[in-house]
Simulated assay, not measured.
Amino acid sequence: MSLTLDEVRKVAKLARLEMSDADLATMQKQLSAILDYVDQLGQLNTDGVEPLAHPLPVANVFREDVIGTCLTPDEALANAPNRLADFFGVPAVFDTDEPVSH
């Protein structure tokens, strides 16, 4: 599947990327090659093949969740630029007069 320059330009715009014409031409070739490869994979016969979450056998490698020492609120907020009681003070996100519920 070959992408047009306009399609690559649209993808770059959606990704918020500014690209020169030379970069667009390079990306057109590379993205088209990727889509051609995906198309090849789509043509493979996968009847009887179970879907996998991961191609390798993976075991849980997480450690035991053990309670450790925690920072006190004063330690955690020592470098906070704005502190409201035991919380970080942040600028308001919503422009509303309604009370904030927690």
Rank of each mutant, 00 (worst) to 15 (best):
A25F: 09
D23M: 02
E18H: 03
Q30S: 12
D39V: 09
S20T: 07
L41I: 02
Q30V: 12
M19N: 09
D21I: 11
L35D: 02
M27P: 01
E18K: 11
K29Q: 05
S32V: 05
M19D: 02
G42L: 01
D23V: 11
L44G: 10
Q40E: 14
Y37T: 14
M19T: 06
N45A: 05
V49K: 01
S32L: 00
I34M: 03
E18N: 02
G42Y: 03
L24N: 00
M27N: 10
D47K: 12
K29P: 11
Q30R: 06
A33H: 07
D36V: 01
G48F: 01
M19L: 14
I34A: 12
Q40N: 09
E50Q: 15
D23Y: 04
Y37C: 06
L35K: 13
D36L: 01
G42R: 10
D47S: 13
A33R: 03
E18Y: 02
Y37F: 10
V49R: 06
Q40M: 11
T46L: 12
M27R: 09
I34K: 00
D21N: 06
S20V: 07
S32E: 13
A25L: 00
D39K: 09
L44D: 15
D36E: 14
G48I: 12
N45V: 10
L41S: 13
V49I: 13
D23L: 05
L31I: 04
E50S: 15
G48K: 08
E50R: 15
Q30H: 15
D21V: 12
M27V: 07
V38C: 02
G42A: 02
A25I: 07
A22P: 11
G42D: 06
